[in-house]
């Protein structure tokens, strides 16, 4: 069975090739690069919004990319239940497109942070994390200046009550608490999923730790989890 995967390329995306490579290497399936000007795209089973600096982060991160022609298609497929994952700038675009709640603000200490951090898997029952266990601690790089997740108190409660927080920043031994999130994120949030369970956004970069040769494999299960979700769904 083959599945169709698209990696969307915006002007300023810079993790698109990394996503294509890690998806292909881990799953053995191909991924198409899709330019943001496309106003009609195939019914991709999986859409990856990669990291980078779409439109130079002008106005707000992801704000202008959200109005690229391809985003109407991404939104259409998301509402049909197709899987959408946004990594870093992709997460920022998903919040601007209202596919995920909240916003990513400037890091608390104003610094662009590019380093390995630790993540705790909070929900291993999603379409994107089935290969992990709740409580697993992953070592994954972040690379962003605006990753400080912010949402209304009502929105935060909704995320908590519906188990929509998928990843939290933690210490190497898996402790979560105030001031552990490197960027100041509310409730140490690093990744969230929508209520329908088909749209995930996260700031860390699983595609950078999907192969031993590249320094780690803790992100690999994101891709294998997605693959097994697609296989279970039986879309072809």
């Amino acid at each position: 069975m083959t599945f169709k995967t698209a990696v969307i390329v915006f002007p300023g995306s810079n993790c698109d090739q990394d996503c294509v490579r890690s998806w292909q290497t881990v799953t053995g399936l191909k991924a198409d690069l899709v330019w943001h000007k496309e106003s009609k795209i195939d019914n991709y089973d999986l859409i990856i919004l990669p990291g980078g600096f779409s439109y130079g982060d002008y106005l707000r991160t992801g704000a202008i990319a959200r109005f690229s022609p391809v985003m109407a298609e991404v939104i259409r497929l998301a509402y049909k239940g197709h899987l959408v994952i946004g990594i870093c700038n992709g997460f920022q675009i998903l919040t601007e497109a209202h596919l995920l709640p909240g916003a990513l603000l400037r890091n608390r200490y104003l610094k662009y942070i590019c380093k390995d951090i630790y993540l705790r898997v909070e929900n291993a029952k999603t379409a994107f994390t089935g290969g992990y266990h709740r409580g697993d601690v992953l070592r994954i790089p972040i690379s962003h200046g605006e990753g400080n997740y912010n949402v209304s108190s009502h929105g935060l409660k909704e995320l908590q009550d519906h188990d929509l927080i998928v990843f939290r920043y933690c210490t190497p031994d898996g402790t979560v608490g105030a001031d552990i999130a490197p960027n100041g994120s509310m409730d140490s949030i690093a990744g969230i999923i929508n209520k329908a369970g088909n749209v995930l956004g996260l700031m860390p970069h699983p595609e950078r730790v999907s192969e031993d040769e590249l320094g780690g494999t803790d992100g690999r299960s994101v891709w294998t989890s997605i693959l097994s979700t697609l296989q279970k769904r039986g879309v072809a």
């Binding site: 106005l59 704000a63 909240g102 916003a103 949402v151």
Partner: peptide
């Protein structure tokens, strides 16, 4: 729609 993000 664009110039401000009502979330923040």
């Amino acid at each position: 729609e664009l110039l401000a993000n009502p979330n923040m």
